[in-house]
Nucleic acid binder design. Structure first.
Length: 287
DNA sequence: CCCACGACCTGTGGGC
DNA sequence: TGCCCACAGGTCGTGG
């Protein structure tokens, strides 16, 4: 589920439940997700106060009052379910279309306000760790990350520098979290479509106008997606109609075989494979 | 260093 | 209906 807009949506939904709360229980129901959970996971969390809920790239960060930060990556299928303590009444809360499979409830948190927050992840590509807060920036997960695409230091000039001399397809570089942090397959396809750039173009060969359009398109699509509460594929449903409807605004992603939506364009969206992943493109207007 | 590919793991949807 | 294959929002390690 999670690229930047989805993680940001989850952050906003969980923040009212977790920020400022004290954990009265933390339970790991298996020893590992993608990686082993850290030693003494339960003890290091139980009794800790969560000071806030932040996001960096696709990571959720929960700084604790003990000098450590709980770091969560949702992988492909990680999700949180909130129950209890008026969870359903809180702004930004959400519900699942179907009850999640309890076999995949791997980590459970309970707050002093009586909320239960359960982490589900069928494929277990997600991961969690506890990292010293003052060393987060040096940690191997964070040190290599490029700028936040919605931050002040991301713009066409940054792309120009990051792409200089690179022969790789522009799509591959936009998926590289060292170039810009937070994009994934959907929003890269969408941003390239908006900027009218073919995903197979060599990144280093893009001119200034294309780079400006690309930087602008990335910002626009992410802002719109966050505004819509992210994208909801497969088994998620909106609660109170407030979350996760950006999938209805996809212009190319998943539209192979359909006519291009750009006014005046007679092209048809194609699906191709780059680095083993699906790319959706209109070969007519994306050049 | 740069790049592509397979691996990780489970579920689901489409085609036959 | 049932089976099998292809594919899925991400990253990491390997090998050319």
């Amino acid at each position: 589920m999670p690229e930047l807009p989805e993680v940001e949506t989850i952050r906003r939904g969980l923040a009212p439940v977790l920020a400022g709360a004290r954990l009265v229980r933390a339970e790991a129901r298996r020893p590992d997700l993608r990686f082993p959970l850290p030693p003494d996971f339960r003890q290091r969390l139980t009794g800790a106060r969560i000071e806030g809920l932040e996001r960096r790239a696709k990571y959720l960060l929960a700084p604790l009052d003990r000098g450590e930060t709980l770091v969560v990556h949702l992988g492909m299928t990680g999700r949180f379910e909130v129950a209890g303590a008026n969870a359903a009444r809180r702004p930004g809360s959400f519900a699942l279309a179907q009850a999640p499979d309890p076999r995949h409830a791997h980590v459970v948190f309970e707050t002093d306000a009586g909320a239960t927050v359960t982490f589900y992840d069928p494929r277990r590509f997600g991961y969690m760790d506890l990292i010293a807060s003052d060393a987060l920036g040096d940690h191997p997960w964070f040190q290599p990350l490029g700028p936040e695409p919605l931050g002040a230091d991301f713009d066409a000039a940054h792309l120009k520098a990051a792409f200089a001399g690179r022969r790789a397809p522009v799509k591959a570089l936009l998926l590289d979290q060292r170039v810009v942090a937070g994009l994934g397959n959907i929003y890269v396809c969408e941003a390239l479509f908006r900027a009218r750039i073919h995903p197979e173009r060599a990144a280093g060969g893009l001119g200034a106008r294309k780079l400006s359009a690309l930087a602008e398109s990335i910002g626009a699509v992410l802002r719109e997606a966050i505004e819509a509460g992210g994208s909801t594929l497969r088994d998620y449903a909106t609660a109170e109609g407030t979350l996760g409807y950006f999938q209805h605004s996809f212009r190319v992603y998943g539209r192979d075989g359909e006519p291009c939506v750009r006014p005046g364009c007679a092209g048809v969206v194609a699906r191709l494979v780059q680095s083993g992943r699906s790319t959706f493109v209109c070969g007519q207007c994306q050049t």
